[in-house]
Computed example of a mutant assay.
Amino acid sequence: MPAHESNDICAPGKYYFMFNLQFLTLVGLWRNDSWPKRWLFFYDIYETTLHILPMIYIVITSIGTYQQRNELTLFLANVDKNLVAVNFITKYIIFMMKRKQLSMLITEIIHSGDNITKKCVKLMSIHVIVVTIFSLSVVTAFCSQAIMNREMIVEAWLPFDTMKNLKQYLTAFQILATMFTPSVLRGIAMQGLICSIIMYLCEQLKELQRRIRSLKFSLENEVQMRNRFKDIIKKHVRLMKYSQTMKVIFNEYFFVQNLAITLELCLNAVMMTVVGLSQKKLLISFLAFLCVALLNAYIYSYLGNELIIQSENIAHAAYDTEWTSWPVDLQKDLLIVIRTAQKPLVISAGGMANMSMQTFAQALYNGYSIFAVLADAVD
């Protein structure tokens, strides 16, 4: 291993997922079956409560949205915020349905013995922290502004008059915040774990490229070189298996993600057309929430694109070796590696598109196209 890389190796990968799994446990999405039965009982109650609260939020805000159907700007503003909540809830329902399969995948990765670089661990932690701070900052900023202006950030039905006095107004605000916040935190926690798996795959593919390029054949080290090449092939097959498993687990998850960002962009375009510059505060809130949604979609697309690039680079690394001096049987094995790597590892969104920067751009284009069609129909 080169000297500049030796200090970059972290502890075995079993510690890599610890931060994200603890975050998921905190938000009621990852129970530990090794806990005592009493702890599991209380955790199940906690988990169920966090399932129910966002559902109630959707119901009461949907009623509030319907009540504002005659006020176009308020109606669209509520639809936008409800769409965010529905996006989070739908994704964590899918996550819960696939949690057992995901747990098996993570367990297999943890026991694989793979090492993770310190840089990758740092990037993973920074990603979760930055996204959490940014998302909560946007939500907190507009909630604070709404409180100062004595406005509801989202219209909802409640069994009392929210504007009767300050006490009832703050009570309504606390109720809505308590119901909505778990969805945001769960969305961030899920994104952190999913991105950490993709980053792990990219990291291991880079490590495979280095190992392939370092292969040197000679009569003196033939046995050692064959064993190293065999280990490389085994690891490549294992990584392809992990990628395929992840593709199956998150197929519906990424479909919902792409659909949500398309609808979000379309709705924001409609809102900017309707509102214009006369209601700057409402327009800024729309753009801020849109930026959060675009950031999340961009992160998924960027990492999906990186996975495609690094898996294809295996073929380039194999071709860059001094294969002309290898025995014919090893050359044939190397050719199989090259041909296999030419079919990149991908993350599918509903089987209709692969997560990549091209898909991200296509989702933006689709959102604008839908808006343009609606605008033409209205005109």
Score class of each variant (00 low, 15 high):
residue 222 E to G: 05
residue 221 N to A: 03
residue 209 Q to R: 10
residue 266 C to V: 01
residue 271 M to P: 00
residue 278 S to G: 14
residue 339 R to K: 10
residue 48 T to V: 09
residue 215 L to Q: 00
residue 252 E to W: 05
residue 39 W to C: 07
residue 65 T to Y: 13
residue 288 A to K: 06
residue 23 F to Y: 12
residue 146 A to S: 05
residue 367 G to Q: 00
residue 68 Q to E: 11
residue 146 A to M: 05
residue 90 T to C: 06
residue 300 Y to H: 06
residue 309 I to K: 14
residue 136 L to C: 05
residue 280 K to P: 02
residue 231 D to N: 14
residue 313 N to G: 15
residue 271 M to V: 08
residue 230 K to P: 05
residue 172 A to H: 06
residue 344 P to R: 04
residue 362 Q to H: 11
residue 161 D to T: 03
residue 287 L to G: 06
residue 97 M to S: 08
residue 95 F to S: 01
residue 274 V to A: 10
residue 232 I to K: 00
residue 145 Q to F: 07
residue 175 I to C: 09
residue 333 D to H: 09
residue 181 T to S: 08
residue 204 Q to W: 03
residue 116 I to H: 05
residue 125 S to G: 06
residue 368 Y to C: 02
residue 309 I to F: 13
residue 168 Q to E: 13
residue 236 H to T: 00
residue 74 L to W: 08
residue 74 L to P: 01
residue 357 M to C: 13
residue 216 K to M: 11
residue 63 I to V: 15
residue 21 L to Q: 10
residue 316 H to R: 04
residue 342 Q to M: 07
residue 242 Y to C: 04
residue 321 T to I: 04
residue 78 N to D: 15
residue 279 Q to R: 13
residue 22 Q to T: 10
residue 263 L to C: 15
residue 251 N to C: 10
residue 338 I to E: 05
residue 278 S to N: 15
residue 24 L to W: 13
residue 181 T to H: 06
residue 141 A to H: 12
residue 291 C to G: 11
residue 314 I to Q: 09
residue 147 I to Q: 12
residue 71 E to A: 07
residue 42 F to L: 13
residue 324 T to F: 00
residue 162 T to S: 09
residue 332 K to T: 00
residue 261 I to F: 03
residue 347 I to D: 07
residue 319 Y to H: 12
residue 256 V to L: 14
residue 292 V to Q: 00
residue 268 N to F: 02
residue 50 L to Q: 06
residue 146 A to W: 00
residue 132 T to A: 14
residue 349 A to E: 01
residue 257 Q to Y: 03
residue 207 E to L: 10
residue 279 Q to K: 07
residue 365 Y to G: 02
residue 245 T to Q: 07
residue 246 M to Q: 10
residue 307 L to I: 00
residue 262 T to N: 04
residue 57 Y to M: 14
residue 144 S to V: 07
residue 131 V to A: 15
residue 123 L to G: 14
residue 245 T to I: 12
residue 54 P to S: 11
residue 102 L to M: 10
residue 65 T to C: 13
residue 335 L to G: 04
residue 226 R to A: 10
residue 375 A to K: 12
residue 379 D to L: 15
residue 343 K to W: 12
residue 373 V to A: 11
residue 201 L to M: 07
residue 313 N to Y: 09
residue 251 N to M: 08
residue 341 A to V: 01
residue 323 W to V: 12
